[in-house]
Simulated assay, not measured.
Amino acid sequence: MSPLRTVAPAILAIALLSGCSAAQSTPEASSTPTPEPRPVPATAGTPEPFDPVAVYVQAAMAGMSVEEKAASLLMLHRPGLDPAPIRADIEGYGLAGVILMGDNVPGDPASLRALTDALVVDPDLPPLVAIDQEGGIVRRLPWDAAAGPDTLKSQPVEATTQAFDARAALLSDVGASVNFGIVADVTADPGSFIYSRVLGIDPASAADRVAAAVGSEQGEVFSTLKHFPGHGAAPGDSHTSIPQTDLAYADWEARDAVPFQAGIDAGAELVMFGHLRFTAVDDAPATVSAAWMDVLRDDLGFDGVAITDDMLMLQRSGVPEFADPVENAVRALVAGQDLLLYVLPADPSSVGVDVDALIGGIASAVESGRIDQDSLDESVARVLTLRRSLAVG
């Protein structure tokens, strides 16, 4: 059975399990006789009505410190083919998981499976192992021969289903559990940075193919829609700048929102936010914008895991406001992000981040009240639910 289908109910169950009992009021006097109490079944009060994943997550969270909760919301990349330092990050910090880049991928599937198997510190709570496997120009597994978005956008929807059927099976076979591979951006401009990676050049065609890709990944890997609220509307490359648009919300809703809504409705478990400024909604980049998080949760109805694009990209933008990695992380969590992504460089002198300082800074922001404790716990519950479902699926 797919672990993916239990995620949203489990999060709801955690909320129910954690809720406080309402104060009981004294009933008014009544002439109606009070019925005799019926025998209580032996199973009453046990957690059977709730998803077992939720029960596990609640118990795990009860024993976590603020620092451990902060660390559980981080996903890192550590360069190299040796699993030992990657596993040390997971075990030492208690990370949510890792993202595999090209420098982590050996020459054959069996070797990659051996690497990902070595990253499992606790089989009861496996790490999320993510990878960018869009197909076409963005693929970390060189043996993925299935069609990519560059060709799928001009083929029937069935071609997308077939391509992502094959792609999802490859990812599952090598031990990847999250694919950052479904581009829900839409643009018809061949000059756009994202054009070769989009699945459709208009809202309807993109939506059909995004939904098909999500459907193909169900039961194999967790699906991620990116780059919310839509790179197609914001010119520029978010790897080195903060692309900006003044697109009106109504126009965004009619165009850029459509593929994301289709992917959410199809069951995508994650949505990745881009470092994109839509100034008509919020002058802040979407990754640190509570306004855009409200749109995702309330208007699009997404209740899964919200993840940032690589947070180091904000630092590389050159904008002084985003020079401090700890402040960036705190702002993202204040905005409601669940999972923070960091692609650490091979060269320590390059733009990077002190992981210990990052965890400490987040914990301090929680203790000062800047990051709401309940919001933090909701994010931890979402991420742990995703991880636990891998073990019990």
Rank of each mutant, 00 (worst) to 15 (best):
T385N: 09
F50Y: 15
I371C: 10
A114L: 06
A206M: 08
T279R: 15
G175K: 06
S375P: 03
A248S: 08
R255G: 03
R5W: 11
A234P: 06
V198W: 02
R139F: 06
A169K: 10
V55I: 01
Q373I: 05
P126G: 08
P285K: 07
I201D: 05
M311E: 02
L17H: 10
R5D: 15
A266T: 12
Y93V: 06
R331E: 11
F222N: 12
V353G: 05
T161D: 05
D173G: 09
D117F: 05
H239Y: 11
V288E: 02
D251H: 02
P39T: 08
P3A: 09
I362R: 14
V210R: 08
S65D: 01
Q261R: 15
A332N: 02
C20N: 06
S205L: 06
T161P: 01
A166C: 05
L344H: 04
M313S: 02
P156R: 13
R209L: 07
N104V: 00
G181H: 07
F260D: 03
V326T: 07
L141E: 00
R382N: 05
T160S: 10
H275R: 13
G263V: 01
A29K: 08
G361S: 14
L270N: 10
K226D: 13
L112K: 04
G361K: 01
L16K: 13
V330F: 12
L73S: 11
D189V: 04
I86F: 11
G94D: 03
E367G: 00
P348F: 09
A62Y: 03
V353Q: 07
G181T: 12
R382D: 00
P33Y: 12
T32V: 15
P325L: 06
I14P: 00
A254W: 02
A233E: 04
T43I: 14
A234N: 04
D338C: 12
P235H: 05
A70Q: 13
P190T: 02
D89I: 10
L12F: 10
S111K: 02
I99W: 07
A286H: 02
A233G: 04
G200E: 04
I90D: 00
S389A: 15
S65Y: 11
V57I: 08
L95D: 07
N104G: 05
E158A: 15
G361L: 11
R388L: 05
N179P: 03
G175W: 07
A22R: 15
L384M: 12
A363T: 02
L81A: 13
A10C: 13
L76G: 06
D294R: 15
V186A: 09
G274F: 00
A22N: 08
R140E: 14
L390C: 09
D265V: 00
P37F: 08
M272D: 00
P27K: 09
V98R: 07
R387M: 08
A329R: 09
V120G: 01
L4N: 11
A114F: 04
Y56K: 14
T116K: 07
